[in-house]
Write a protein that binds this DNA or RNA. Structure first.
Lengths: 224, 224
DNA sequence: TGTACATCAGTGAACGCGCGTTCACTGATGTAC
DNA sequence: TGTACATCAGTGAACGCGCGTTCACTGATGTAC
């Protein structure tokens, strides 16, 4: 490599990192039109502007690149969470602030969120496992954060975790739908519906009986 | 074709239908290890036991076969819904009966549910659109069925639809997770968690204020 | 019922193409002195 | 600072392979009389 990266002042490891990033970018760029496991190594290198063989300087195979994408995508999600935690309006207006945070994140990191949504139940086992594991960590963290709400602070951790899972699922499915929507009107409708659903869920929080054995609690429980 | 299907007593169209079914079965059989768009036409025909060229007697391309699978999968889901509607215990014990219905369906039609979960946000645009449309029809039907519950019968149709969407999402995500789980213990844990979540959601139903503008209702709504 | 012809589901050979991976290589960057 | 050598990110040719699609075909099934 000579001046591919105007490398006169770049160290070898810096240049290598640039190529690595180009490969990751390239894979994400190809994802809107394909599942990850139908993207070829040659497509990725072509998109990144390097020869097919250069790929092996960075990853053993495309699956390993996929795992790097999982880490990257959840890295940006954790940053989102940190920002949300620092938002002083969060406890006062949790639903709207959370939704807004996720919407902004989807706009800023569309590729990452599409990757998560697509590969969460996609065709590559190790990617599914890695994504599930990261989502579990995410939900675990969320469960801790939720303790600041008085109504939830008295709940047993397991119940709080169940609640956090429900919020996580709802947010991920909102992101998955937002990523697929082209029109701002479509986005608004998704956001409006998810806001109502989150509101409905939180209405149940006050009436929740902690410690309740779910098997018993479920019996004779209906919507009327 | 001579006796591929012991066809002595089979009409030409019956034999053709058998091959078509074999192609659909073959695609579903290959799905656990792949996304739909990374399965090749030749793999499908190999699995189905016919020559690659025979494929074109039934479908223009694999995408068209995928669309046929969407129809088939949602056909079996509609049958599930009809059975559920006929269950006399449904109104008395809605959450448990619904969950049980879905669990049984996932066991009986694992391939169909995996296909829906995998391709709902998968790499083929037309399949995503077809699945979304079918899920919308499903939720629409569910919203009508939910009117039998006194607490919901007074709700505006739009609110009931929002609620039906939430139930649908929860059930689909339960199915998606069940399909990926190998151990019965894992299944039990998923079912227990989803049961609690559905219970929490229904607890909010009584406190729901119909007609509420979600934008206003969302303000200052938090979990405490 | 028997015969002659039409239909058409499935076949097998052939095509050009993009694939993942290997290999020996190049030449800029890094290091030892 | 200059020189000689080592490292290693990226290259380009080559390989064998499975792919989607075409084509002319076969022979059982269906139909007309």
């Amino acid at each position: 490599m000579t001046s591919r990266h105007r490398s006169r002042s770049r160290s070898r490891s810096e240049s290598k990192e640039l190529t690595r990033q180009a490969l990751l970018r390239a894979a994400l760029k190809l994802l809107p039109r394909n599942s990850f496991d139908s993207i070829s190594l040659r497509e990725i290198t072509r998109e990144a502007g390097v020869s097919p063989t250069a790929f092996y300087r960075h990853f053993d195979d495309t699956e390993e690149l996929g795992l790097a994408l999982v880490e990257e995508a959840f890295g940006s999600l954790r940053q989102m969470m940190r920002d949300a935690r620092a938002d002083p309006a969060m406890t006062r207006d949790a639903i709207n602030r959370s939704i807004e945070t996720v919407v902004v994140h989807v706009h800023r990191h569309t590729d990452h969120m599409r990757f998560i949504a697509r590969e969460r139940y996609g065709g590559v086992r190790r990617l599914r496992q890695a994504i599930r594991r990261e989502l579990e960590l995410f939900s675990e963290e969320l469960a801790i954060d939720l303790s600041v709400f008085p109504a939830l602070s008295a709940w047993p951790p397991a119940d709080r975790r169940m609640f956090a899972d429900l919020i996580t699922d709802t947010m991920v499915s909102m992101a998955a739908e937002l990523v697929e929507t082209r029109s701002p009107e479509g986005e608004d409708e998704i956001v409006r519906r998810k806001r109502q659903q989150l509101l409905l869920i939180t209405l149940g929080v006050d009436r929740w009986s902690p410690h309740a054995d779910p098997e018993d609690a479920g019996h004779d429980a209906d919507a009327s």
